[in-house]
Design a protein around this nucleic acid. Sequence first.
DNA 1: CGTTAGCACTCGACAGTGATGAGTGCTAAC
DNA 2: GTTAGCACTCATCACTGTCGAGTGCTAACG
Lengths: 356, 356
Amino acid sequence: MFLNDRKFKILQAIVTDYIETAEPIGSRTIAKKYSLGISSATIRNEMSDLEDMGLIGQLHTSSGRVPSEKGYRFFVDSMMKSRALSVEEALFLQRMIIDNIGQAEYMIQETAKALSRLTKYPAIVSEPFLKKTTIKHIQLVPLDEKSLLLVLVTDTKTVKNQIVNLPSDTRSSGAPGYKALTKLSAVLNNHISGKSIRDISRDIIDKMLAEFGENAHVLMPVLGIIADMIKAEDDVRVYTSGIKNILAFPEFAEKSKAEAIFHALEDRESLFAILDQSKAHEGIQVIIGAENTLDLLKACSLIKANYTIDNGTGCIALIGPMRMDYTQAVSVLSGILQNMQQVIEALGLQAVKATT
Amino acid sequence: MFLNDRKFKILQAIVTDYIETAEPIGSRTIAKKYSLGISSATIRNEMSDLEDMGLIGQLHTSSGRVPSEKGYRFFVDSMMKSRALSVEEALFLQRMIIDNIGQAEYMIQETAKALSRLTKYPAIVSEPFLKKTTIKHIQLVPLDEKSLLLVLVTDTKTVKNQIVNLPSDTRSSGAPGYKALTKLSAVLNNHISGKSIRDISRDIIDKMLAEFGENAHVLMPVLGIIADMIKAEDDVRVYTSGIKNILAFPEFAEKSKAEAIFHALEDRESLFAILDQSKAHEGIQVIIGAENTLDLLKACSLIKANYTIDNGTGCIALIGPMRMDYTQAVSVLSGILQNMQQVIEALGLQAVKATT
DNA sequence: CGTTAGCACTCGACAGTGATGAGTGCTAAC
DNA sequence: GTTAGCACTCATCACTGTCGAGTGCTAACG
């Protein structure tokens, strides 16, 4: 699609103005507000052409014009200038990096918060979906005579821990002491470190049982919990932040519409459905209105990017009305991706594939 | 305040009906809906008396009557029958107990979720505020040559872990191996287990430095992170759930009102201000409208209870419009408190003080 | 031939109007 | 003491006319 310079500028004015004000915009307003050096009548003629091309529309005869989905698409593809982060945004992200040089899990939550705070749009961030989590390290820690603590480190440096309550029928033999536990930890690490849960064969279990000796009764509860933890780890979590921000948009003023969005963003299943769209896409992707496969989002736009850590890929996204500030949202999202890259590198994981 | 039987029943009818419908209720409706055996005219006379007593009011002449704050207070204090949990509610809680026999941290989050799901009101639950967290156990776990994992168990069985990145200038000496770390863990436990962060004196640090020997460079980073973790632990967290439910209430239909509530419930500071009201109160407490010290909540009611674990006390609360279903809310809250008690007992902590 | 001014037309927003109905308070009768 | 009846109040709703923003069309202008 080709537009002459004047049409280009008029469309740009309509889109940016509508993104800002959420009000249909008329020819006279454009003539006054944007000094294009032509009269409102001329603008009317051009607008009529733009309407024929399907780039703008009107809600009823004699209302101002509003960008159509095609118009937004044209704007995103051809008009949007990439914007540098503002000083405040850059500083905010910088501080976040410092706070996050800790653990991958927190980084993901914090990323969601930062995204929504910087953009005023609700943010969704999913943990990387890992095909096969493997055990990196196991440590048993004594608590008291009837329970002990199991700490599990996985190959992505996620750390999990859970209390193991020893079955009451074997409680008479009691929990092993500190020294015994370090020995048992060593046995566990020797046999199952580097393995995924499926790799633990009957054979390996038998060997470990023998080496556990008098503490054999501890092994099965421990293995059971390890299996649960790995399974929970394979269950990807999704974090959202700033959902309340949608109340600020007039397009969700109707309570039923706001409720629908709230519902979708608090429900795990629908969150996955939202993020699962076009999973293979590289770089930042903008999905406008009906381009969404979900009916619920046909009135919304979604800006999303996939990121990769080690052997898994996760997703990071912003949701807003179709009239969302694509320029800002894309630049912030891109900044955040670079941020994640730095944190991940600091954690010694493989870098995020970020393409802008 | 004393009411004769007829006035009592009429007030009860007005409160329960208004809680259900959110519409002012007139004399004729009461006469039809509740078979009190008297005509609407008589009811009108009685209502006039109730209005003089300040228990009900009307929005304008010739609107139906609405309970006043004093009316709600009278209802809660004198009319509310405690209700047994329904089968569904009881089952739901039972399942929750089973899922929660893990760790105190998750229990608190899950409690918030359960509360809001069962009542349809937003729920707030705070972690117990602990005066002085003490270290119960420390374990250092090897990760790779430049980092190790620190696991910390506190006296309330909260488990925290964080990766310790060794300073680069000492990286040449490398991270200690598995065996060395178990020895270092033992040193740490010998000296600071059972202590709070303030109890770690310069003297103790010097002793540990000596015992660490060639790995002395590891000690300070580790202690620094322990201090941070304990500090973070002393920072009580607050969880909310089901905030979106307020959209369902007509009293928050105005966007500005809903936004105010959302804002208050997403902001840590205001959450604490909400929960801090009448901290010393025992058992379940109902705070109605202007009884709230916060201006923001003057139009809301708050149902809250404090719970105690070991040396700390936390808070659990429901927020709703003044017209909230006190009967249901109180019974569910009381059920949840008993639930927490069971989980806490299973964890070996001291029981919740639940008084209903 | 592109641009512009002028004009008729459309339609949403808003304020004013009257009818309707739910509800009250008062009074008189039971 | 209780009830029926009646006048009165007030929110709600549908309807109406006015106003203004905006469009499309046409004719005139450079």
